[in-house]
């Protein structure tokens, strides 16, 4: 439990750093972006909305930076992330609508690609030297393709040329969002191609990492001993794989950040209504409150995923759990 506590502390600290960076950036950047923004908005939105935006940046600039910082934090805890300039509604409301799509898409794809990558990497590592090794350069190539580029190619080939998958959006436009069977089925159908794209882009990383670990672990004494014990081949492989997967999970924190970063752009390619698509529209319209809100939400989500990975790691590696040695 002490380890979880330490990790939790790290994530709280990280969240605080992210929040502070979020606050400081608009205040420290040359050209006074907040004033420019508010000046641009005069007459476009209601005075109340301007006030909400001003508060979400920490209030008036006449107050000191520290006082603005506390106002900003206070607003944050009250759920005021400001008002989107382009969409003219509170950032928190907008996020509530798009976050579930992203979590669903990225969650499912990450899980799938981790499973597929780990299992295939384990086999690839175990059968090193066999014909399967030919997969490595291919996997390396896929790993190097930017997510959004692969998604574009997939969209072009399987979506608009072959019409195997529906493209653009997250569900059929003829349906009303809700927990109805046709809607859920349609959501799954529309998620297929984005999921396949993300999995194809990210699976090679897991696979190559697991392969290396498998080769390293296969050279350990306890794997040789499991052979000497006459265990079945399946059990021997499981012995190695069970130990080789631990570093993969330990590295999840780095990987989740990268996968999320890549997957956000896939949303753009497919016009998927998640936070990625939202973020890029916000960037193009210089919708700063929205950009910042999205950054915070993504960071918090990634931190939560990291904590989850830590718990899983702890459950799988008894060595990290021991605090008193007999």
């Amino acid at each position: 439990m002490r380890i979880i506590g330490r990790r939790l502390l790290l994530y709280v600290l990280t969240a605080w750093v992210a929040i502070s960076v979020n606050f400081l950036l608009p205040h420290l950047m040359p050209g006074n972006p907040i004033q420019t923004l508010i000046g641009k908005l005069q007459g476009q939105v209601t005075p109340q909305e301007i006030e909400a935006i001003r508060l979400s940046f920490g209030g008036g600039i006449d107050k000191g930076l520290l006082s603005q910082y506390f106002t900003y934090i206070d607003q944050l805890f009250h759920g005021n992330l400001g008002v989107s300039i382009t969409l003219s509604s509170p950032v928190s409301t907008i996020l509530k609508a798009s976050v579930p799509w992203t979590i669903g898409l990225i969650g499912v794809s990450t899980l799938l690609s981790f499973l597929i990558g780990t299992v295939s990497g384990a086999l690839l590592g175990w059968t090193r030297g066999s014909r399967l090794d030919a997969l490595i350069p291919t996997a390396t190539f896929f790993q190097a393709i930017p997510y959004f580029f692969l998604a574009t190619v997939m969209l072009l080939i399987f979506g608009s040329n072959l019409h195997w998958f529906p493209v653009l959006g997250a569900y059929s436009q003829n349906l009303h969002p809700g927990w109805t069977w046709p809607f859920v089925a349609s959501a799954f159908r529309y998620a297929e191609l984005p999921v396949v794209s993300i999995v194809l882009s990210s699976v090679a990383g897991w696979m190559l990492g697991m392969r290396n670990m498998m080769i390293t672990v296969a050279a350990e004494d306890f794997v040789l001993m499991s052979v000497a014990m006459g265990l079945s081949k399946r059990k021997v492989i499981m012995t190695a794989a069970r130990n080789a997967v631990l570093p993969s999970i330990a590295n999840l924190s780095l990987a989740i950040g990268l996968v999320v970063s890549g997957a956000l752009l896939v949303e753009l390619v497919f016009n998927y209504p998640g936070v990625g698509d939202l973020l890029l529209n916000a960037v193009q319209n210089e919708d700063y409150p929205l950009i910042q809100g999205i950054f915070l939400v993504i960071t918090l989500a990634v931190l939560a995923a990291n904590l989850l990975a830590d718990v899983v790691y702890l459950a799988l590696d008894p060595r990290t759990r021991t605090e008193t040695v007999a």
């Binding site: 350990e220 306890f222 001993m225 499991s226 069970r242 130990n243 590696d317 008894p318 060595r319």
Partner: peptide
Amino acid sequence: SIVLQSALSALNPV
């Protein structure tokens, strides 16, 4: 059966 020099590395750690 076989016993190795280092039982720590010979026993499955998990």
